[in-house]
């Protein structure tokens, strides 16, 4: 067998395969980015049209995030817990009195929904309530432990990525970034 020839053929085949797969990957990434950018532009137009000003830039970079397993420290119930971060994302809980003792990332990541989706969810929620949407002062991606329906006996919970919208009046509105 002519190994030299065989190697040449293999190298060419792998180069072609890599070129196809690499191009497909780059196109898919670009496509997602374009979708987010287009959504951001549409959201801006829509909010302009309804008279709501967006005093912040809409994040347009697609992100994949896992869930976060959060353990609370039962000994710290005085609200003195320091803010906890997972990488650059802050972990917020609806129970400010409970300090977060530790966080652990879930095994797998999932593509989160765009910030534009969160803005539209906010607008839809206001419409359903019969209220006018307020101006948006800030959009932040963070981890949220939603404990609105749970009491203080919880020792461990799961934080999911969420878009936090800071409204003009200082209020906040959270949207589950997994789109659930």
């Amino acid at each position: 067998m002519d190994w030299t020839k065989a190697k040449n053929i293999l190298i060419i085949a792998l180069l072609i395969t890599n070129a196809i797969v690499g191009t497909t990957y780059a196109l898919r990434l670009q496509e997602t980015r374009q979708v987010w950018t287009a959504e951001a532009a549409h959201a801006t137009e829509y909010f302009d049209a309804i008279g709501v000003s967006l005093n912040t830039e809409i994040p347009a970079k697609p992100v994949k995030l896992p869930v976060l397993f959060v353990r609370f420290d039962p000994a710290t119930e005085d609200g003195s817990g320091e803010p906890v971060y997972d990488g650059k994302y802050r972990v917020e809980t609806g129970r400010p009195s409970a300090a977060i003792a530790s966080v652990r990332r879930g095994e797998n990541k999932r593509q989160i929904s765009s910030a534009s989706y969160a803005l539209l969810k906010y607008a839809a929620a206001m419409e359903a309530r019969g209220e006018a949407p307020q101006n948006i002062d800030g959009i932040e991606l963070l981890y949220l432990v939603d404990q609105t329906e749970h009491d203080g006996t919880i020792s461990e919970d799961t934080a999911v990525p969420a878009w936090k919208l800071t409204l003009a009046g200082g209020e906040t509105f959270y949207v589950n970034a997994y789109g659930e």
């Binding site: 190697k7 190298i11 890599n18 797969v21 990957y25 990541k109």
Partner: peptide, 26 residues
């Protein structure tokens, strides 16, 4: 050529993994 083959082989695996992980959840 041997070295290039090894590099290309692992690059193929890496690219396929990246492409698959774009859609898959794990």
């Amino acid at each position: 050529k041997n070295a290039v083959l090894v590099v290309l082989f692992f690059t193929t695996i890496l690219l396929l993994y990246l492409l698959w992980s774009l859609d898959a959840q794990g």
